[in-house]
């Protein structure tokens, strides 16, 4: 039977980075994923790729700030270009009634140690000339940014392997092995796996795998989130944009294409890892993009897809 000190189930960006960090510190690590690299990441492989500190719940902000220091050296540390760009992010607001809430959030986040400020009117226009005149203000965090999610995820699992972590692809974990209250391993399609510690980082499958091991996790629900990307455009936007209340995030990838995210819904089936686009949501997302950056009206969408996320009860 294969055995390890630590078994990590799920080689998405979280599982792969945990496996890498533990292996680098000398732990004996086995990383298992139901699929193949780099597609062995249902959520990480379909993410819009934002690397964001602002707009998070309070307990996450110090962690997010600390992570930015790690991101800065990550490409060198992992030995792969992960297309990390740290040029800031602005949450835009078009409705003056939302300004008090914007100022209050920025004040809270500054108090938590984040470098962030409100930018209004002409200053906003100078900073973001491509943004629609309907935008009246924004919260600008200069150290937010974006990265390529597929490359980042694969960079972590490759680096884990260089530190002698073993990786099992095409390995579907079906349940836990138990000795009384203790979890001693997993039952997997590759055979039984023994471990002293099990790390479950399986995204939307997390609570399903846990339930098969008779462990109830307080997961609330899944979200099927739609994203789109456009044909390449000349450089126009270095920051990441979001529009408060309109369900959009927008960034220009190094290839020149605009990645449109923000949470418009798709449909899907988590057990079958199936996803389906909703044309109405694509249309709404496209229209919102043009309302935010009018110059993109004639730019074609070349691809749309869905990512599956799951949310715990405390979000």
């Amino acid at each position: 039977m294969r055995s390890a000190d630590v078994l990590v189930v799920g080689a998405g960006v979280i599982g792969a980075s945990i496996a890498y960090n533990l292996a680098r510190d000398g732990a004996d690590v086995l990383l298992a994923d139901r699929a193949q690299p780099p597609a062995g990441s249902t959520a990480s492989g379909s993410s819009a790729g934002g690397v964001r500190q602002q707009g998070r719940v309070a307990p996450e902000i110090p962690l997010a700030i600390e992570s930015i220091a790690m991101w800065a050296g990550l490409a060198d540390e992992l030995g792969m270009d992960i297309h990390y760009h740290c040029h800031g992010m602005t949450f835009c607001v078009d409705d003056p009634r939302l300004l008090p809430a914007l100022h209050a959030r920025v004040a809270r986040e500054r108090a938590a140690g984040l470098e962030i400020r409100v930018v209004e009117a002409d200053a906003l226009r100078r900073m973001l000339p491509c943004v629609s005149p309907r935008i009246v203000a924004g919260s600008y965090c200069p150290t937010d940014g974006h990265a390529d999610p597929m490359r980042t995820t694969r960079a972590f699992s490759l680096a884990a392997e260089r530190h002698r972590a073993r990786v099992l692809w095409d390995c579907d974990v079906r349940g836990f092995r138990r000795d009384g209250d203790r979890i001693t391993g997993a039952e997997a399609s590759a055979g039984p796996l023994a471990c002293r510690t099990l790390v479950l980082t399986a995204g939307a499958a997390t609570h399903r795998i846990a339930a098969r091991g008779s462990v109830a996790l307080p997961m609330l629900r899944e979200g099927f989130l739609q994203m789109m990307v456009t044909a390449p455009c000349p450089p126009m936007l270095r920051q990441v944009l979001a529009w408060v209340g309109h369900g959009i995030s927008l960034k220009q990838a190094p290839s020149g294409g605009f990645v449109i995210g923000g949470g418009w819904p798709g449909r899907g089936d988590v057990d079958r890892y199936e996803t389906h686009l909703i044309p109405g949501a694509m249309a709404k997302s496209a229209g919102t993009t043009v309302n935010l950056v009018p110059a993109l009206a004639g730019v074609p969408v070349v691809r749309a897809w869905i990512g599956i996320e799951s949310y715990a009860r405390d979000e």
Binding site: A101, G223, G262, G263, P265, I278, A281, G287, A297
Partner: peptide, 30 residues
């Protein structure tokens, strides 16, 4: 490939997507 504005203009002809937008971008509104 479909231009964004043309795709956006289809919204009124297409069924509304059911459910909610899980917009991380609206976090922290209040």
């Amino acid at each position: 490939a479909v231009p964004l504005a043309r795709l956006g203009a289809l919204a009124e002809h297409l069924a509304e997507p059911a459910g909610t937008v899980n917009a991380d971008v609206v976090w922290g509104v209040s």
